[in-house]
Amino acid sequence: MAKPVQYNNRLGMKGWWGGRYGLERWAYFLHRLTGLVIVLYLILHIFVTSARVFGPEAWEATMGAVGGPVFRFLEYLLIAAITYHGFNGLRLIFIEWFGWSLGRPRRPIYPYVTSLHHQRPLLIGMMILAFLFLVFSAWGFLTP
């Protein structure tokens, strides 16, 4: 029997940002990017905040090193990343665990229906909540 034709249709890691993607695919890309950023931050955060063990001077010196407007701005970006990841993550938990917005199972008879029109409102709703939280965060940052 003839060997099946091999198409080189795999993008590999380039597929994270390549291709003609819809909204959900961008949501996935951002989720992955923010997830990576937050893990790296978590590791640093554990070391930085453990400076307290070495006494008040060590603590103040460490906080001084990561203080100032630049770090404060980065901190806001980090909160934005966590906010996105958190609300989008909640959406994924609703879909993957609770099975929300998947639509009824049906036979795959042409014309096929997609459950996207159930899922997209959930995505948009979560993004509105994330946006509201970010406005609240900006207020928290700007008021002493």
Binding site: E75, I79, I82, G86, G89, L90, I93, E96, W97, F136, S137, G140, F141
Partner: peptide, 20 residues
């Protein structure tokens, strides 16, 4: 996934009360 759900609460509390 369970950890993600729990983190939503723990991290939310942490960010709101320490950072904001």
């Amino acid at each position: 996934l369970i950890a993600g759900l729990v983190l939503f609460l723990l991290l939310g509390y942490h960010i709101v009360f320490i950072h904001l």
